[in-house]
Amino acid sequence: GRAPKTNVQSSHIRHISLPLKQGNNGVDVDLCPTCVNTFDDLIYFVLDGIIELGIINTCDDICSYVTQKSGSPVLEAICSIGCDIVGVNEFIKLATEVDLDPIYFCESLKFCPINDNGDAKFISFIISPPHAQAYSTFIFDLTFESVNGTGTSQLLFNIQTIDAIKISSFFLIEAKKPGKYAERFSIDTTPDPDCESAVDPCEEWFPGVYNVTVMICNGECGSHHPHSQLYDMVKGSFQIDK
Rank of each mutant, 00 (worst) to 15 (best):
G1L: 13
G1R: 15
R2F: 13
K5F: 11
T6L: 14
N7K: 11
V8C: 13
S10A: 15
S11T: 12
S11F: 06
H12I: 01
H12L: 10
I13P: 02
I13D: 01
H15C: 01
S17H: 12
S17W: 11
L18R: 12
P19T: 08
P19D: 05
K21P: 00
Q22P: 15
N24D: 15
G26M: 08
V27D: 15
D28M: 09
T34W: 00
D40G: 11
I43G: 10
Y44N: 06
V46E: 08
I50M: 11
I51D: 15
I55Y: 14
I55L: 12
I56G: 02
T58K: 07
T58C: 10
C59I: 04
D60C: 00
D60Q: 14
D61H: 08
S64Y: 12
S64P: 00
S64R: 14
S64I: 10
Y65F: 15
V66S: 09
V66A: 13
T67Y: 10
S72F: 05
P73G: 07
L75T: 03
A77W: 00
I78A: 03
G82E: 05
G82D: 06
C83P: 01
C83S: 06
I85D: 09
G87S: 09
E90S: 13
E90Q: 14
I92R: 13
V98C: 08
D99H: 10
D101E: 12
D101M: 04
D101T: 08
P102Q: 13
P102V: 07
Y104I: 01
S108K: 10
L109I: 08
L109R: 04
L109T: 03
N115T: 05
D116V: 11
D119R: 02
A120R: 05
I123H: 13
S124D: 14
S124T: 12
S128E: 08
P129T: 06
P130V: 06
Y135M: 10
F138I: 04
I139W: 00
F140D: 00
F140L: 02
T143L: 01
F144H: 06
F144D: 03
E145F: 11
E145H: 14
V147Y: 12
T150F: 11
S153H: 00
I159Y: 01
I159W: 00
T161H: 05
D163H: 07
I167T: 03
I167K: 02
S169V: 04
F171S: 04
I173G: 03
I173A: 05
E174V: 09
A175Y: 03
K176W: 02
G179E: 12
Y181M: 05
S186D: 11
I187A: 01
P193Y: 07
P193R: 10
S197P: 00
V199E: 11
V199F: 14
V199T: 10
V199C: 01
V199I: 14
P201D: 14
W205M: 07
P207H: 07
V209L: 13
Y210I: 02
Y210D: 04
N211D: 15
V214M: 03
C217H: 08
N218F: 06
N218T: 09
H224N: 13
S228D: 06
L230S: 07
K235R: 13
G236K: 04
F238H: 01
D241P: 00
